[in-house]
Design a binder for these strands. Structure first.
Length: 391
DNA sequence: TCTGGGGTCCTAGGACCC
DNA sequence: TCTGGGGTCCTAGGACCC
């Protein structure tokens, strides 16, 4: 295990940085990218953060905190393009680039020294190229494993580089507050605080059995391992979308909805989005999950597993509606609905023979035609009639 | 007009099978 | 007369990440 050299590279305020490339006049101002209606802040400039704006904060709260901040609507296509360009730069350094999301990646630099020189110089050069060629600032961390590299890049932000040699790992980690640790969210932090544990060092020195009682065997052990700077995970050379285990879509209504007819129609839209993505990825899935969030923010999920996997809009929609109807909701105020398909397999491994003798056959042909038309003429060129009606 | 949308992984109970 | 044990699948929920 020893001797690994892992880097983590993370683009700073990614969505905002992409926007600033094309609107340089906003540089230095409090700017955030966020959903407009019932949305949250997706990315905030450091000037906006100085005014208290944080990602995942409701947009209305951001506006209240800083009325003169500039709010921008997200442009995901642009961000995905920028992300691809950055990954192309990372690919020039090593074969082992593990994309963790659109704006961060792990790189294995264990074997690049003879070819490229010191890892910290490689990283400095990468950051300079990403800034020079793409106009995007980034931060990077270097450590003996992915977790330490990630923590290092986090502490290096913004626009920094932090190297944590193996013998410095505990000196680096242990003074940090537990809630800064990757893998510790709000719920875990609350429990740790109740146990009197405030720093990662406190956590590292706690008996594993104590943590396993509080968090379960796996999570308890994981916390102790990470707090001690140990992470045995091996990187995989791939993009995040290359190992998808589920595909889904969800939508929050502009206003809470009572009418089941509106929910049914939204489920059709979501089934269409989900199944189109399945087909594009040439995947089929067996388990269909319906999720609901209500006005009071409580939520539930219901799922069912089909005998054979599917990628058909109609099948997914029908099952989702069935799950919804089975709940027997009366006058529920629905805030959000979602559909997710899991148990994914390569579509080519699944026989479609049976379809030839079932009514589904016609649907498969029709669906393929709709997908082709939408590819050529845009996503909404061909839609089911019930989606084109007004509410 | 508080609280998105895309995901991953873990837990836990019951069914079912050998 | 109490009634094993393990593995896998299914379902529901929850924590976490960006």
């Amino acid at each position: 295990m020893s001797g690994q050299v892992i880097a983590h590279l993370d683009l700073d305020a990614f969505y905002v940085s992409v926007e600033l490339r094309r609107r340089p006049e906003l540089q230095g101002r409090p700017v955030y990218v966020g959903g407009r209606h019932r949305g949250v802040v997706l990315s905030a400039s450091y000037q906006a953060r100085a005014r208290g704006i944080r990602s995942a904060m409701p947009s209305v709260t951001a506006r209240r905190l800083c009325p003169d901040a500039i709010a921008l609507a997200p442009d995901m296509e642009e961000y995905v393009e920028a992300s691809k360009a950055v990954f192309a730069i990372l690919d020039t350094v090593t074969d082992v680039v593990e994309g963790a999301s659109v704006d961060e990646a792990y790189l294995d630099l264990t074997r690049t020294r003879t070819r490229l020189g010191r890892p910290e110089d490689v990283l400095a050069d990468l950051r300079a190229r990403i800034l020079g060629e793409q106009g995007l600032p980034s931060s990077a961390g270097l450590g003996p494993n992915p977790f330490v590299a990630k923590m290092a890049s986090r502490e290096a932000k913004p626009d920094g580089l932090l190297v944590v040699p193996p013998q410095m790992v505990t000196d680096f980690l242990w003074p940090l507050p537990v809630d800064r640790m990757w893998g510790v969210g709000e719920a875990t932090a609350d429990t740790l605080h109740r146990l009197g544990l405030r720093t990662i060092g406190d956590l590292a020195r706690t008996l594993p059995a104590t943590l396993q009682r509080a968090f379960g065997p796996r999570q308890g052990e994981k916390l102790v391992e990470l707090a001690n700077g140990r992470d045995r995970r091996r990187l995989m050379a791939r993009r995040p979308e290359e190992h998808e285990r589920s595909i889904g879509a969800q939508e929050t209504f502009p206003v809470d909805v009572y009418d089941p007819v509106i929910v049914h129609r939204e489920l059709l839209r979501l089934a269409e989005r989900t199944s189109a993505r399945l087909r594009r990825a040439r995947l089929v899935g067996r388990t269909i999950t319906l999720s609901l969030r209500f006005a009071n923010f409580s939520s539930l999920t219901r799922s069912l597993t089909l005998p054979e996997p599917t990628d058909l809009t109609d099948e997914i929609h029908r099952r989702a509606v069935c799950l919804y109807e089975r709940l027997g909701l009366q006058r529920a105020r629905v805030r959000q609905v979602g559909i997710r398909v899991e148990g994914l397999r390569d579509a080519s491994t699944v026989s479609t023979q049976a379809d030839l003798f079932t009514p589904e056959h016609g649907w498969r042909e029709a669906t393929a035609a709709i997908d082709r038309a939408n590819l050529r003429f845009g996503p909404h060129a061909v839609q089911r009639a019930s989606l084109t009606q007004d509410w």
